[in-house]
Design a protein around this nucleic acid. Structure first.
Lengths: 189, 189
DNA sequence: AGTATGGCTTGATATAAATCAAGAAATCAA
DNA sequence: TTGATTTCTTGATTTATATCAAGCCATACT
């Protein structure tokens, strides 16, 4: 089983005879550090798994740049509202490092539902899972201080803290780089 | 077309011959003010539309009560992770007023997929829509002040501000009742 | 090697929002 | 209606976090 098939299996629990059908629709793609996967306002017509590397999902407002999320190895990446509802992309997505992707084009993505009858049901579960992760994140903003959010997130993804420019982590957690730096220092052994 | 059918139509865009099949699976139910739709830790085995009234979705932590959302007429209500993944409910859901619901039991809900082949695809779109709403909410916490969140939310649901105890709105927006009260006063004409 | 450049740290200060506290208004119950 | 709760408002104070500013440390550049 290829790495891609393992990811699809673990996210969607597809049976192994279907796995190959799906994974054949993906192709490998590389994005160099600094290059863009997607620009705000464009239409997102693909969905990718990260084989290795990192992508930052952000948006530029009048005052500042807001990092919404950083995706790493094993994660999905797309602009869901653009892919699914054909709307202009909300997010800009840029590679923080040289990144290899398994990518499926929208047209092929839409074919999966015909190939595999239970696909939509599995996909629904996947998106529902993503939904609950966002619920957790909102909860963290309703009930935690900056330091608590730091610890909550660090517990979930400690690897990220060594690999990602800290200013982006700070933004993603809803605090300034200075505050992030101080908290980080305090929490270092 | 009944009110329930209109909701289902508008959320899912089901064709009219399927609408009745679906709506027949729902039954009406009433919850008195103060009564509970769901308790944290229990299993949520239903999904409801609000015909009228209001429900508050919240969780009690060691320090405080955190209101995650307030659902009103026309909205869906359930604990998604409990309904879909059969996990203990994260949220407690309580009626803020006498509330009439159209409710479908989990067992019937699961039947819809068999009745209507494209159901899972429609449901996926529905959850994806909910997902993007949560993305917006997270963005509001990453980039806005308390006052800006107040205005952002007020623009979306001005009706709520007259009907709901303000302390719950405050919690839902991630601020204290005092801060909410001051901002509200300032923004009153 | 030397010097830019961008990212991180640290300190001083300002500000938004929380907390504490008391009183006013609204809601509820008898 | 009246008193009893509960919720809301307002002011004073504290605290967390942002902002401003300077220096430091890496990495990249020539």
């Amino acid at each position: 089983m290829t790495e891609l098939e393992q990811y699809i299996q673990s996210y969607f629990g597809v049976s192994s005879d279907n796995l190959m059908q799906i994974s054949e629709l993906f192709h490998e793609e590389e994005i160099k550090k600094g290059d863009y996967f997607l620009h705000t306002g464009k239409y997102c017509n693909k969905l990718s798994f990260i084989k290795n590397g990192m992508l930052r999902i952000y948006v530029t407002t009048a005052e500042k740049e807001v990092t919404q999320w950083i995706s790493t190895k094993g994660f999905f990446v797309t602009d869901l509202s653009s892919l699914v509802f054909e709307q202009p992309a909300r997010w800009t997505i840029q590679a923080l490092a040289n990144t290899e992707l398994y990518t499926i084009q929208k047209s092929d993505y839409q074919k999966i539902g015909q190939l595999i009858p239970q696909w939509h049901a599995l996909e629904k579960l996947f998106i529902a899972k993503c939904f609950t992760m966002l619920e957790d994140r909102i909860f963290s903003h309703l009930s935690m201080s900056a330091e608590e959010r730091y610890q909550f997130f660090f517990a979930q993804q400690p690897e990220l803290f060594n690999q990602v420019p800290l200013q982006y982590l700070a933004s993603m957690l809803g605090m300034t780089p200075e505050t992030f730096s101080r908290i980080r220092n305090k929490n270092r052994i």
